[in-house]
């Protein structure tokens, strides 16, 4: 239906965005690929040597890689589990005829707007500090020994902080989806004698299947690259206990100045993210036609 003229005009209007995104994505990525085949240290510039796949072999067989891969998966998996289960709970709760709902909504969504460095430091100091933190006080008043969160269970502490930021996101999306659920369907089920539990399992959950998938995919993309929370609380430690892939690449590049190794790590991270992105793009593409 569009004439050749509008087609040309359309192309001209879209072109700047396409060109910019293409340059932004392809140029650095090709450079990363190129660097990943070099022995290249920032401390010793000008001495770059082609080493083939040496960096990959080194990076992938480095115990730090395996540790950080496990940490990444544990972090992503735990935060997803907490935010999906908690998100369903909060979404169901906020879908009820609750008094003061607008205020409750504001309180629930708020953590999502807190910048990562703020939430990490507030949790680390005001709550998880082993002596003066609020948790330590609560533990002591019940007669327990306070937990030194960042020494004894550092990864769990990070999971708590990140989950607190992402739970509101899951809640908001699942609540939006719940509110589009046809009330008549639920009423019909109730008239047929279905209790709240079976209504939830047979009607509400299937309706939430797609939004839950969306939450999982989108959160995974962001969670694979959690960085600031680790940088300002543990710096990846103690040892490698809280180093994820993103932090490992950062440390290799900007702390150890190993450009080649870091680039290989970066490519590994891109491959991991692409596996998730593949499914997400397909899901959204399907939705675009509907």
């Amino acid at each position: 239906m569009s004439t050749r003229q509008t087609r040309t005009a359309g192309r001209l209007l879209v072109a700047p965005s396409v060109v910019l995104l293409f340059v932004w994505m392809i140029v650095p990525l090709v450079m990363t690929l190129y660097f990943s085949t070099l022995r290249y240290s920032l401390l010793d510039p000008g001495s770059e040597v082609y080493v083939g796949l040496e960096n990959y072999r080194y990076f992938l067989t480095d115990p730090a890689f395996f540790a950080s891969l496990v940490n990444t998966l544990v972090l992503v998996g735990s935060v997803l589990a907490i935010s999906i289960v908690g998100g369903i709970f909060f979404a169901l709760l906020l879908d009820q005829p609750v008094w003061g709902l607008p205020i409750i909504r504001l309180m629930v969504i708020a953590p999502f707007f807190v910048m990562p460095t703020v939430s990490a430091l507030i949790w680390k100091n005001l709550f998880m500090h082993p002596v003066s933190g609020l948790f330590a006080w609560i533990a002591r008043s019940f007669g327990f020994t306070p937990v030194d969160w960042f020494a004894e269970m550092p990864l769990f502490a990070i999971i708590v902080i990140v989950a607190w930021q992402w739970l509101p996101f899951a809640t908001l999306i699942l609540l939006t989806a719940l509110q589009s659920l046809d009330g008549e369907q639920k009423e019909a089920a109730e008239m047929d004698g279905a209790g709240p539990v079976s209504t939830f399992i047979w009607i509400v959950l299937p309706h939430l299947a797609r939004p839950i998938t969306v939450v999982i995919l989108i959160e995974t993309i962001f969670l694979l690259t959690v960085f600031a929370e680790i940088l300002v609380t543990t710096g990846g430690g103690p040892g490698l206990q809280t180093t994820n892939i993103a932090f490992l690449v950062y440390a290799q590049a900007l702390l150890q100045y190993d450009v080649g190794g870091a680039s290989a790590g970066g490519i590994v991270a891109v491959v991991l993210a692409n596996i998730v992105a593949f499914f997400l793009v397909r899901l959204i593409g399907k939705n675009l036609e509907a």
Binding site: P28, S263, V281, I284
Partner: peptide, 22 residues
Amino acid sequence: TLLWMLSTKMMPPVGVLVPIYL
């Protein structure tokens, strides 16, 4: 085009940290 644009958002920033920094 739209889906391709979306996929660029999914590239992890660490993948391009080194060249961008340099």
